[in-house]
């Protein structure tokens, strides 16, 4: 599929009105200044793609005309200074912004070429397909086992208790938590340490085997060993799944991702192959950020 053809597939529903546009200069009609994203935000085989996404919290615009593809079986890292809108953008990908009062999303986002903001989109199905690990660990105030088993249970993924046990164990193992908690699966998940809670949330997210996993700083509370385990997991997961990860660690972005997107004040400044971005950034903001002169 050529880039142009793939772009033609984006149906223009709702507020999106730019199905056909010039290949290079993305039309940015909402941005205050006429910034153009450097690099190619789209890929040939996109699992998810965002086009000209604007996000508003009330009157305040947090995301300005961001277009970004997330390729199939690809890990995309999102970096940028605090408050630049990484979490906000990530949340648009599984419509978690819907539950924030006053939050409004404009633009066009597709999953497997289907608009996820169209009115007949089922958000429950969408969130089962696009899982999320939140920036702050948020285990349910229930047992460790129930935390992991909850997703498979409501979706009816396990047909027997033994199968459920298997899913729970496998998920906990992959999140590198099983050995620490195997004797206390019935203890409340909220009683774990911060880092353990975050891994529990990762286990919970992967237990439903979503097609896309959105990770918002999954390792910010983890020690280097647990971080290495999660990075291993990401490598493992990308064989089958598509991953978008927000991180404040340049090294992590460099290690796990194929492509990196740099956000700044709600705009996508630069995007490209991770190696390119880290070795040869085009925009001075990107360069400042990754060399540590900023943020």
């Amino acid at each position: 599929m050529s880039t142009v053809a793939s772009m033609g597939n984006f149906s223009s529903k709702g507020t999106a009105d730019k199905a056909d546009k010039p290949q290079q200069a993305l039309d940015i009609n909402h941005a205050a200044d006429d910034h153009e994203t450097i690099g190619t935000p789209w890929v040939e085989d996109a699992k998810m793609s965002a086009r000209n996404v604007n996000v508003f919290y009330g009157d305040k615009q947090a995301i300005m005309s961001v277009s970004l593809d997330i390729g199939r079986n690809e890990v995309v890292a999102m970096i940028g200074p605090s408050g630049c809108g990484k979490s906000t953008f990530l949340r648009t990908l599984n419509r978690m912004n819907d539950i924030i009062p006053g939050c409004r999303v404009e633009g066009n986002i597709t999953l497997d070429n289907e608009d996820i903001y169209q009115s007949q989109q089922d958000t429950v199905l969408l969130r089962a397909r696009v899982g999320m690990v939140f920036q702050k660990p948020n285990p349910f105030p229930k047992s460790i086992y129930e935390n992991v088993a909850y997703g498979p249970k409501i979706h009816g993924l396990a047909h027997s208790n033994a199968e459920m046990d298997e899913i729970v164990e496998k998920s906990l193992r992959r999140a590198g938590l099983f050995n620490e908690v195997k004797d206390q699966l019935d203890k409340p998940g909220t009683g774990l340490s911060g880092g353990q809670q975050q891994r529990l949330c990762i286990a919970r997210a992967i237990a439903v085997s979503p097609e896309v996993i959105l990770m918002d700083e999954p390792c910010s509370a983890l020690d280097p060993i647990a971080t290495a385990r999660i990075e291993e997991l990401i490598d493992e997961l990308k064989e089958k799944y598509t991953i978008a990860i927000v991180t404040h660690s340049m090294q992590q972005a460099a290690r796990v991702s194929q492509r990196t997107a740099y956000f700044h004040l709600g705009k996508l400044i630069e995007v490209g192959d991770t190696k390119e971005i880290f070795t040869n950034p085009q925009h001075h903001l990107t360069e400042n950020y990754i060399t540590g002169r900023f943020g």
Binding site: N94, M96, I99, T123, V124, L125, R127, A128, G131, M132, F134, K136, N138, P139, F140, P141, Y150, G151, I154, H155, C201, R204, A205, A207, V208
Partner: peptide
């Protein structure tokens, strides 16, 4: 806490 709601919605609970 809203985080509990987000967690549940995030794994696909209605």
């Amino acid at each position: 806490p809203p985080s509990i709601r987000q967690a549940a919605l995030g794994v696909g609970a209605s």
